[in-house]
Design a protein around this nucleic acid. Structure first.
Lengths: 140, 140
DNA sequence: CGGCATCCTGTACGATACTG
DNA sequence: CAGTATCGTACAGGATGCCG
């Protein structure tokens, strides 16, 4: 019987060699896109290039500071490109790079899951909260 | 010319009705899976049910506190189920629910992207840092 | 063993004022 | 317009101890 467990252990360690099950790889992508604004900005820019202030207005609630920081880090990773037009009122446009666009599909898959299941999650949470909250006054 | 822009504006607002481009929906899924441990735990549990201490050992670097909190919130959302075996040494097992398994595919898509592109990102970062760091002493 | 309560730190993020 | 610099806060998350 414990041989069974032993076999499982081997199988699992093999499985671990598959990159998409490697916790570290998973962490790295989450560190990249798991922050508050990166995916929002990519989502907006994926449709069309936009200027700094335009993004500031379009992204609901972002601060100038976070817009700057997030754009810089996206640019650093090569997901977004910064285009400077040396005009009298300075103009800067941001656009998603081809590499950045490769991120779009995976993100859309996740977003679609979210869209499809947000109701279920809300219901589950409510049920859980009810069950936990008042096992004090619902009997009889 | 500005008519073109006007048309774009309309198209964009239509696009906005598509749930996977709605920033709010995007945020909700990130709030759910964007934290440090949720996807790791689901990844582990998706292979086989595990006990609390087992998870503590298997997930690299998680603290008891975060394991408890993360498992609770996953349970609350119906992604993970908690099974209690009333034995002499208390035993509790966690398993991914069918609903939780629907998350697996989207996550794997993202994980695969991460695995495929981590080298590119590393290279991009390095290039960016070099370019930014020393435009001080590399001319001539 | 499983897990909550407490304390503490790092940091992500926002608000605001200033610059080119 | 497109940022940078500075400050303050809220919260994620780690360490630890106690308890059933």
């Amino acid at each position: 019987m414990s041989h069974q467990t032993e076999a499982d252990r081997v199988l699992r360690s093999l499985d671990r060699t598959c990159p998409e099950h490697d916790p570290d790889v998973l962490r790295s992508v989450l560190d990249r896109v798991g922050d508050k604004w990166s995916l929002i900005l990519i989502g907006l820019l994926e449709k069309e290039p936009m200027r700094f202030t335009e993004l500031l207005r379009t992204a609901p609630g972002i601060s100038r500071r976070m817009l700057t920081l997030t754009l810089r880090s996206l640019e650093r990773d090569g997901l977004v490109r910064r285009e400077i037009y040396p005009e009298v009122p300075p103009r800067v446009e941001y656009e998603v790079t081809p590499f950045g666009r490769t991120l779009t599909e995976p993100v859309l898959v996740l977003a679609r899951w979210a869209a499809d299941n947000q109701d279920t999650i809300r219901a589950n949470r409510h049920a859980f909260d009810v069950a936990a909250g008042h096992n004090t006054d619902d009997l009889d």
